[in-house]
Design a protein around this nucleic acid. Structure first.
Length: 310
DNA sequence: CTCATTTGACCAGC
DNA sequence: GCTGGTCAAATGAG
């Protein structure tokens, strides 16, 4: 109990610190942009890296907060309630057995209550669309559809660990009609798999691709977290409503109020540089970002984001 | 051989 | 009936 309380407070403080740090980094970037009409690519990249690190750390905390000791109230709405077990007892037999049933439940009704948010990602075509998808999550494409009124087909991805870890996160990638270099990525559901956000090694048969990515990602994230913890300076000032819920992620006010401006101009690299390993021309893109865990509430969350890839 | 992608078919919601 | 979302067999890549 006591530990739960202190952990809750600790999460809150950590999140607050990270949020502030990210704000400062964004301000720095803004300052760079305003003072020097065009910051050098190195500067830009550096800021993006910093932001990315903060972002990762925040997400790690969110994840921890959602499954950690604080045992925050089950996100009854945000996740498929029936079978998402965050306690790590996947019961794979049952999973497979109940796969259809679960589909029937989650695919039809629960899909609507899953947290949903959208990111717009711009890719520099010169850099090509192939490259490491180093987002910490691995996705498997399961469908592609021509969408009415859209010039480009929409691709559907789900978490590779769907059956193994009962992770029901999905995403849709839609290339923009107006600007073909922009991909609109809609994420649905949150990752319940422990890839990328935990140190738990993959189960019996580690998939080469993921393990390669994950080890790197996990290292980075853990490093960020460790560094942060090491330098943690407890401060409760400015503990505002943004960080009242450890398991919920609230974008800083500047995000939510000015996200178009800020994200477009200052939050490039929101998660990381990532490009798709896909080579097929119909398989445009397989980017992914770190997923916010437990946006909480019954409302589906929508967030728009523009990521510039250089 | 294993795993990911492709793609036509199916299903549910509007 | 139309459209978007998902399934699953076929196919390809490593």
């Amino acid at each position: 109990m006591e530990s739960g309380l202190s952990l809750t407070w600790e999460y809150r403080t950590l999140i607050d610190e990270l949020t502030q740090g990210m704000e400062k980094a964004k301000q720095l970037h803004f300052h760079l942009c305003s003072t020097t009409s065009s910051p050098s690519e190195a500067q830009d990249l550096l800021v993006q890296r910093i932001l990315s690190s903060y972002e990762k750390a925040l997400l790690i905390l969110k994840w921890r907060g959602s499954v950690g000791p604080a045992q925050v109230t089950a996100p009854a709405s945000g996740l498929p309630e029936s079978s998402v077990s965050v306690d790590g007892s996947p019961r794979s037999d049952d999973l497979n057995k109940n796969f259809k049933d679960h589909q029937e439940c989650s695919a039809s009704k629960k899909r609507k209550v899953q947290p949903t948010w959208t990111e717009q990602v711009r890719v520099n075509s010169e850099n090509g669309l192939d490259g490491p998808t180093d987002d910490g999550y691995s996705w498997r494409k399961y469908g592609q559809k021509d969408i009415l009124g859209a010039r480009y087909p929409r691709s559907y991805y789900r978490c590779t660990y769907r059956s193994v870890q009962n992770c029901w996160a999905t995403k849709q990638v839609q290339r923009s009609d107006d600007d073909p270099t922009i991909f609109e990525i809609t994420y649905k559901g949150t990752h319940t798999c422990n890839q990328s956000t935990t140190t738990v090694p993959p189960p019996a048969s580690p998939e080469k691709q993921e393990s390669k990515h994950n080890s790197h990602q996990t290292q980075q994230q853990n490093q960020a977290l460790l560094n942060f913890k090491a330098n943690l300076k407890v401060s409760t000032e400015n503990l505002d409503s943004n960080v009242t819920m450890p398991a919920q992620f609230s974008f800083p006010s500047t995000y939510t109020e000015n996200h178009d401006f800020l994200i477009n101009d200052h939050l490039g690299g929101y998660s990381q540089l990532f490009l798709s390993p896909a080579t097929s021309e119909t398989n445009y893109f397989s980017p992914a970002t770190y997923h916010m865990q437990n946006f909480g509430g019954n409302h589906s969350y929508q967030h728009s984001n523009l990521i510039l890839l250089r």
